[in-house]
Design a protein around this nucleic acid. Structure first.
Length: 477
RNA sequence: GACCCCUUCGUCUAGCGGUUAGGAUAUCUGGUUCUCAUCCAGAAGAUCGCGGGUUCGAAUCCCGCAGGGGUCACCA
């Protein structure tokens, strides 16, 4: 018997993937890969009304962008094809008929409206609604034009969940539910059980909205005379207010948006995995491979976690700093200012190197590197609003800047020489570093922030530095 | 109305009968010749939701309660 671990991610094609759905996919992927198993992408498209066009492609694109590679899926057929439930209708019919033969399924003689009335009635009497209380005595033979309903065998259940632990529920949690809808499509409740069985899925990793349905699933597994896979229920990801599940309405966004905003794949995976999972140590920053190797369902938190984007931002900076210069350059080379294309790769790489420890997102490279590629517009307000420089006399400032220019004219612009000459100037002018260095820094970058002065001047080079100083001197009256 | 699950610094979390309740982030302070950031050092921040028990001893085990979340669809 093949005991290979098989997990699946089974989204419905109703839109993009957000943080919550990505986490479920990630955990399933980790379980498969850690155990050298198989990861399947299955699309649960059994509700035509809710389907959003293009979302299957979008989900696949998301998984591929994040390198969450599945072994089988709609565009990667294997032993278990097809992977769209809408293409497996004959399979569900076959298994539905088996249940009819066993006396465990029957044609639902009621219309949706009639069932709705039963429900209202139960609600009015403050009772829990159970369809089985309305179960028809002699249901008609099922002709496939009405709903096929499961004939439940109510009983209490105790079961184990790899994350939630030991769970239990009474017989009131077991009811007759629809297996196949009047339109011929199966419900999730039926289709996923049949598919997981046929695809040899060993672990069902799903979000917690299904936990209340497990007793009904257990009853169906029994009726089908099959063993159920390992269950693992992932807690919800909450919105920033911590009140409710993160939803699109509360600002949950497309995971791909984070990529286009300059977050790294590694950050996203590290961050989302850390929302509920840890390895018991104090480590915070993990590579994807590390998580894959260390991941354990038993170490997943039971309670919901808040999505805190400040922590995400910190983690992104940490991952950016862990990158080699070559890796970082490849990631940001297309995000540099337009003018950067006029410069050679070596220069651009040096700019990226100086900015690496300052980046929180990749996209910040544009704004932070502008003055390395474009001639800045002289901005004296940076001097006027400077804590120290604003206290100095304008004439003195002009004098010091002139002397700085004269000094730099003599420099070969190596970091060593720049350091020596500017430190000497510091003594000659009797100024403090905060005054002289800030002044030169602003006069050459006209930017509220930059890398260190010597690094900046060294990279800008003599010609540009002197040109900018001259331009600034002309503006100071 | 019924059923189920959850509850440790603001946030993410460690902890699984004996800890000064640890780490990270966020916040604040100081240092790193200049800004921003990094890095380093430090501060503050949790009566472990509340109330009972069991025990020599409980954040950890048991029972209530409260708060939060989820489910009760011909949606997944």
């Amino acid at each position: 018997m093949d005991m290979k671990t098989v997990t699946r991610f089974a989204p419905s094609p109703t839109g993009f993937m957000h943080v919550g759905s990505l986490r479920t996919a990630l955990f399933a992927w980790f379980v498969a890969k850690k155990n050298d198993g198989k990861f399947i992408l299955r699309i649960e498209d059994t509700d035509k009304n809710r389907e959003v066009e293009g979302s299957i492609e979008h989900i696949i694109k998301t998984l591929e962008t994040l390198n969450i590679n599945f072994d089988e899926g709609p565009n990667k057929p294997g032993d278990n094809a097809p992977y769209l439930q809408s293409e497996r209708l004959d399979i569900y019919l076959e298994w539905g008929n088996k249940l009819i033969e066993k006396g465990r399924a029957y044609a639902d003689p009621y219309s949706e409206e009639e069932v709705g009335e039963f429900r209202e009635e139960a609600k009015a009497n403050k009772h829990a609604f159970l369809f089985r209380n309305y179960r028809p005595e002699n249901p008609p033979k099922w002709d496939g034009k009405t709903a096929l309903r499961f004939k439940s065998d109510p009983k209490p259940y105790r079961w184990h969940d790899e994350i939630m632990g030991d769970l239990s529920a009474g017989p009131e949690a077991v009811d007759d539910f629809i297996l196949i809808k009047a339109d011929g499509y199966p419900t999730y409740n039926f289709a996923h059980i049949v598919d997981d069985m046929l695809m040899n899925v060993t672990h069902i990793i799903r979000s917690q909205e299904f936990i209340a349905s497990v007793p009904r699933f257990l009853n169906l597994y029994e009726a089908l005379e099959i063993e159920h896979p390992v269950f693992a229920t992932v807690p919800p990801v909450m919105g920033p207010d911590g009140k409710k599940k993160l939803s699109k309405r509360d600002g949950a966004k497309d995971v791909l948006d984070y990529i286009s905003e300059g977050y790294l794949i590694e950050t996203l995976i590290n961050f989302i995995a850390s929302l509920g999972w840890n390895d018991g140590t104090t480590q915070e920053i993990y590579s994807v491979d590390e998580i894959k190797n260390k991941f354990e369902l038993s170490h997943v938190q039971k309670s919901g976690a808040n999505f805190d984007d400040k922590r995400l931002l910190w983690m992104n900076g940490a991952h950016i700093r862990n990158l080699s210069l070559d890796e970082l350059y490849e990631l940001v080379k297309d995000k540099l200012p337009k003018e950067a294309e006029k410069f050679d790769k070596e220069y651009k790489k040096k700019v990226v190197g100086l900015l690496q420890e300052r980046l929180k997102t990749l996209n910040e490279i544009d704004e932070l590197s502008t003055f390395f590629f474009e001639e800045p517009i002289v901005n004296l307000s940076l001097i006027e609003e400077h804590k120290q420089l604003s206290k100095e006399d304008k004439g003195d400032l002009k004098d010091w800047l002139t002397k700085a220019k004269e000094t730099l004219e003599q420099s070969d612009f190596s970091i060593e020489d720049l350091t020596n000459k500017l430190n000497t100037l510091l003594e000659q002018t009797g100024t403090k570093p905060v005054v002289l260095f800030s002044l030169i820094r602003i006069a050459t970058t006209h930017s509220p922030q930059s890398p260190g002065l010597f690094d900046t001047l060294n990279l800008l080079g003599k010609e540009k530095t002197l040109g900018r100083l001259e331009k600034t001197l002309l503006e100071i009256k």
